[in-house]
Write a protein that binds this DNA or RNA. Structure first.
Lengths: 331, 331
DNA sequence: CTAAAAGCCTTAAACGTTTAAGTCAATCGA
DNA sequence: TCGATTGACTTAAACGTTTAAGGCTTTTAG
C-alpha cells in the first residue's frame, strides 16, 4: 500500500523490451561503453527519453560497489562555522559526482558513532568528519572507509585544518604594530587543541614585545563567565584578545553594558571571522578561517582517497589571514 | 584498484556459511521475522558479531525498494535561517530511521532541478524542499516521490510555513501598544509571498490606529539601498519596521553611523529571530520563526506520506511569537 | 494411532543493474 | 578463397539482500 500513488519508475529492461534489444545493449549505450551501432544508440536513447527513464543508482551500486555518496558528520549546524563548511563539502562532492549524507551529531560522540555506522551500512565511500570532541570516536570505521577529519589533526587520519598557530601570530603582529603594549586575553578551553594553538601562536609572538596583563579561559560562547566579566573592568589593558569571534562579540556586548566604548576605550579582536563578525558594532577585526577552502579541500582529498590514491596520511594546514575592521584602533 | 586498502565487508552469506545455515535463515533472524529456534538465533547473532557484519542497505534496497533516505534541498546554508531547519529535518528523519541527503542549491533553480533528479536516481523516498524562488522548479518530480515544501505554500504540494500574516499582526499590536503612532517600513521584496504576507499582516493591523509615514523595499539583506538609507534620516517616525532581521541589523548599523541611537532616538523591529538577533546591540525585538518546529514537522509529514498516508495536500501554518528585546522602547 | 497443525529450516527467484564471455555475420588481408 | 579480425549484439552470471513456497520433523487433537 505504501507509495501506491507514486509511479514506479521505468527500468533499463523496459527500454530493452520496447527497443527490441537486450538489456546489455541498453546499458552499453547509456554508459558509453562497448560497441553499439549509431542506429541502435539513437533508438535506445530515444526510447529512454520517451518513457522517462532515469538510472537506478542503488541497483547500479549493488553491481559496481560504488554508491557515489559520502557522509558528512559535524557537531552542530547552528554554529556558524559549519554551514559554510557543509556547503563547500557538498559543492565539491557534487562536482566530483558524489552526493552527501548529512549528520549533525549534536556534539554527542555516541551519535557520531551511530552516524558513521549508519553511513557505512548505506555504503558511503568515504566520510568527512568534523569531530565534536578530541575523542577519536570513529576509530573502528577507519578500516572500512577513508575518513578525512577537518578542523583538528587526529593521528591515523587524513586531516585538514587551519593553521591556528600562525593565525595567532598574525594577530599578535598586528596588535603590536598598532602600538598596543598591554593585553588581556580571553582564551578558549585549553583542552581543545584548536584553542590552545591559537593562544600559543599569539602569546609566543607577543613575548618580549608587550605585556599580557591577564589571561582567562571561557567557553567558545557569547556567554561570559563571571570571572571573565570581572576582568573586563580592567582599565590597564588597551586591547582584549579573544579565543574566537563568539567570545569577542560577547565581550563587546559586556563592555557596552559597562559603558566602555570599543575601540575608543579598549580594542577587541576575535578569531575565525564567522559571518556575524562583519556586522557587529563595531565590526570585528579578526583572523579569517578559510571555511570554504577547508570544506573543498576535505571533499577533494576524500574523493582522491576513494579513487585509490595511496600514500601516508596527510596533515594539511591552511593559511589564515588578517581581516581588519573597526574593533581595534591604534594605541 | 580503487578501495584496495579498505576491507570488503562480510556479507549475510558469509554468516550463513560459517554458521552452517541458509542465507534465508540469517536474514530471518537479523530482521526478527520468520520462525527460527532460539539456538540458531543465538548462533547466527554470535557469528554476525564475530565477523563484524553490518547490513548492506543498498542490497537490501534493491529487494525491498526502500532506501530509508530522503533528500533535503535548500537555497543557501549560509543564510542563518537554514542551518536550524536542516538540523531539525535531519534529526526528525533520523528518529524515523531515515538518512538525509543534503543539497545546497545556491539559489539556482537549475541546481534544484538537477539535485532532485539526482536524489530520485539515488532512490530517496521523499524530498523536503525549501524553494529558492517562487518558481515551481520541481513539478516534474512530483509524481515520482512525495515532496514537502517548507516556508512557502505551493499549489499541489504539501506545504509547511510560518504564519507570516499573523506574525505581522503580532508585531503591529506590540508596536501600537508601546505607543508608537508614526511608522516607517522597510519591507522585503514584495514579489516573495513571505515578504508580502508579513507586510500585509502588519499594515492591516496598523490601519486606522497609526500612520505609516513611508514604506520602501529592500532585499532581505544587511546591505541597504541608497533610497532606504535616505529614509533613515527621517526624524518623524518613532519606529522602523523591517522585513526581516537582516534588514533590521543593517538599519541599526546605518542608524549608528548617522549618529542616531536605537532605541533612544528611534526604535527598530525585525522579523524571523535569526540567531544573530539576540546579539546585536541593542538586541533585536522581533517575531520568532519556529525554525526547528518547521523542520521537524516537514520531516514528520514527509515520512507519513512515504508510509502511505493519503489525503489532500496539507497547507500547514505554524504560529509565530513575539520576542521582546531592547531595540524597541515605549514612545 | 493417525491426520492435521505447527515449528524450523531450505530452495530459489527476484530487485535493476553491469560486464565477461560468447555468437554470428561481415570485412579484411594475403 | 579462406582463416583471421572486427563489429554488433546477446546470454547469463553476479552484486547482497528478502521472501514466497515448500519440505521435513515434531507436536497436537480427536
Amino acid at each position: 500500500m505504501a507509495k501506491s500513488t507514486y509511479r514506479s519508475r521505468p527500468t533499463l529492461r523496459d527500454i530493452a523490451h520496447i527497443a527490441g534489444v537486450s538489456a546489455a545493449t541498453v546499458s552499453y549505450v547509456l554508459n558509453g561503453k562497448g560497441s553499439v551501432s549509431a542506429e541502435v544508440q539513437k533508438l535506445v536513447r530515444k526510447t529512454a527519453k520517451d518513457i522517462g527513464y532515469r538510472a537506478n543508482y542503488v541497483a547500479k551500486a549493488t553491481r559496481t560497489g560504488q554508491t557515489l555518496s559520502i557522509g558528512l558528520i559535524l557537531p552542530d549546524l547552528k554554529n556558524p562555522f559549519f554551514p559554510q563548511l557543509a556547503q563547500a563539502v557538498q559543492s565539491a562532492a557534487r562536482a566530483a559526482g558524489y552526493a552527501v549524507f548529512l549528520m549533525d551529531s549534536q556534539g554527542d560522540i555516541e551519535v557520531e558513532r551511530e552516524g558513521a555506522e549508519d553511513f557505512i551500512s548505506r555504503g558511503v565511500e568515504g566520510i568527512v568528519w568534523c569531530p565534536a570532541t578530541e575523542h577519536d570516536s570513529l576509530s573502528e570505521y577507519h578500516a572500512d572507509v577513508p575518513i578525512v577529519v577537518v578542523d583538528r589533526p587526529l593521528p591515523n587520519y587524513d586531516a585538514i585544518s587551519s593553521d591556528y598557530y600562525s593565525g595567532g601570530g598574525l594577530l599578535a603582529d598586528y596588535v603590536l604594530a598598532q602600538g598596543h603594549r598591554h593585553i588581556g586575553m580571553i582564551v578558549g578551553p585549553q583542552s581543545l587543541s584548536s584553542a590552545k594553538q591559537r593562544r600559543d601562536g599569539f602569546v609566543d609572538r607577543i613575548k618580549g614585545c608587550a605585556e599580557i596583563d591577564w589571561e582567562v579561559e571561557n567557553d567558545f560562547s557569547i556567554e561570559l563567565s563571571d570571572e571573565v566579566r570581572r576582568q573586563l573592568n580592567d582599565f590597564d589593558v588597551s586591547v582584549i584578545g579573544c579565543g574566537n569571534d563568539f567570545i569577542a562579540i560577547g565581550v563587546i556586548r559586556a563592555l557596552h553594558e559597562l559603558g566602555r566604548r570599543v575601540p575608543k576605550d579598549v580594542s577587541v579582536v576575535g578569531f575565525d571571522d564567522i559571518p556575524w563578525a562583519a556586522f557587529s558594532i563595531p565590526a570585528l577585526t579578526t583572523i579569517r578561517q578559510p571555511f570554504t577552502k577547508l570544506g573543498n579541500e576535505a571533499a577533494t582529498l576524500l574523493v582522491r582517497r576513494i579513487l585509490g590514491e595511496g600514500g601516508p596520511h596527510v596533515n594539511m594546514t591552511l593559511g589564515m589571514r588578517l581581516v581588519t575592521r573597526g574593533s581595534l584602533s591604534r594605541h
